[in-house]
């Protein structure tokens, strides 16, 4: 669980998730382009790659290879645990 809270504590990582929700299955290149142009996040590809690793270890992003390219997919399943722990209505 700690991985999950740490993963969503960072604004750049939240922006990555926003972009994947908008269009799932992106390469690192596409994600970096969107973060720069839409969010004004000028981090290096290397930095974004490290953010993706954090999101992957929390299970929020799944990286899959198709041919020679690597694509990143959003997985919202781990977030369910948050809503179950602190339900909106009891």
């Amino acid at each position: 669980m700690d991985d999950l809270y740490r993963a969503i504590s960072d604004p750049t990582r939240r922006a990555i998730l926003d972009e994947l929700v908008e269009r799932d299955g992106q390469t690192l290149f596409e994600l970096c382009g969107r973060l720069t142009m839409k969010h004004g996040i000028g981090s290096s590809r290397q930095a974004i790659s490290q953010h993706l690793e954090v999101l992957e270890s929390a299970g929020l992003v799944i990286a899959k290879r198709e041919g020679r390219c690597k694509f990143h997919w959003f997985n919202g399943e781990p977030l369910r645990a948050i809503a179950e722990r602190w339900p909106a209505k009891r």
Binding site: R23, Q26, T27, F29, E30, G33, R34, M37, K38, G67, R68, C69, F71
Partner: peptide, 25 residues
């Protein structure tokens, strides 16, 4: 042709990325 990125609007430019089948995007 296989696209790894469909057209994405970046404000001043719209870009897409395709596979040239020879090992390049």
């Amino acid at each position: 042709v296989r696209f790894t990125q469909p057209p994405v609007d970046h404000g001043t430019v719209v870009t897409a990325v395709l596979d040239d089948t020879c090992g390049n995007l």
